[in-house]
Amino acid sequence: MNSIPISFVSEPVVISRDQHVPNLFWAINACARSNDERAKELIYRKLYGYINAVISRYVKDIHDTEELVNETFIKAFKAIHTFSYADMEESKVEKFFYGWIGRIAANLSIDHLRSKKRLRIKDDSVSEEELRKVYVAPADNLEVQDILKLLSQLPDVQRIIFNLYEVEGFSHQEIAQQLKIPESTSRTYLTRAKQRLRLLYSQLMEINKRNN
């Protein structure tokens, strides 16, 4: 890493030949080494939208979401020196950093829901009817906002398990360990979450048809 640029983000960046364009890779380094305020600001501005989106998938209340976004950055800045990326390509570092901070955000969101006593998980099995898979094809005009609305209508546990399994890519074993539930319960709730999403989606499409 060469010299650290004097200014960026809020001030126009003057790039000389021996300076790199300030990017996330530089900011991670600078933040880890010297807790640089400008580096923190760059990271915050660059990842704010991503972290906000991750937390919005778990938490519905916008005030709680904003607080959790800030909590995530506080924890990330505090522990950024533990983020190791030696021998890793610069392009991969950014990807891993997104994954690393995204997991902090997801953990905080789950802790938040747990502290609010929102996670009541019953250990029951899924019925035969529920197990029957009925595929519903997506429509062309499905917007992200529609998807978020559908997701927000799921019960908290179903929403968390759907996010962890389908979006974050965790296995049922890992989800079971995190939520302290049996693996079979995780599977049950995922099946229910998917069935409910299909149902909600079909209802949404019906309403749209009628309106058109």
């Binding site: 600001e41 915050y44 501005r45 704010y48 939208g49 991503y50 906000n52 989106a53 919005s56 998938r57 976004v69 898979k133 595929y135 519903v136 094809a137 997506p138 429509a139 062309d140 499905l142 992200v144 998807i147 559908l150 997701l151 759907f162 996010n163 389908e166 979006v167 998917k194 999403l197 299909r198 989606y201």
Partner: peptide, 28 residues
Amino acid sequence: KPDKNKDITKHIAEVLKGHSLPYEEGAW
């Protein structure tokens, strides 16, 4: 653009994976 051969839940997951909200002025 949704893949018509995919289930809606898979499509939802893919959309969410790539979803990011815009930066709100004054957030920093």
